[in-house]
Amino acid sequence: MHNTEAKERVSSELHYELSQHYYQEATLLQNGEFNTWIETFVAKDLHYWMPVTERRYSKDKRPEPTPYDMAIYNDDYDEVKDRVARLLTGAVWMEDPRSTVRYLITNIEAFHTDKDDEFVVRSNFVVYRHRGQLEHSEHVGCRQDLIRKVGNGFQLVRRKVSLDARVTEDKNLYIFF
């Protein structure tokens, strides 16, 4: 499901467009514009996935996690939409007053695939979250995306979020990475 082959790197022009798309996406999420994000930046055939990865010895030959295994996120489009809807009910006490989330997106590498309009894009992230008076957390990892060209923009088709930390040092991971 998540092993679309990455072919040659995209041109600098396309790389620029894709980078701008990623920055725009981060801006929407930072501003709490989740509806705009899900309506315009996300494809209806989405798979949004954050596997749980154990610490294993290098001699361990068991396979990597698949979408059939335990995962923190393993959502289709409607499921992510429901997560957005929950945030907009006005009854999420933890988000009133709102917390701030800041995305630093770097190391964007984009590749062509077999399809003209689809690209494999890898990026690193640091997400900082601040809440209440002193509460703060940071999450570091990488994303492996399949991105589709749609009209003037792009839509997210698949996202695999890999967190670097085994134990999450935060109350929850209810953040769109």
């Binding site: 335990m70 995962a71 923190i72 959502d75 429901d82 999420v92 933890m94 929850n172 991971l173 209810y174």
Partner: peptide
Amino acid sequence: ARSFGTAGTLESD
């Protein structure tokens, strides 16, 4: 996991 995992729609509350 969706309702009561680390990003649970209920557990996060």
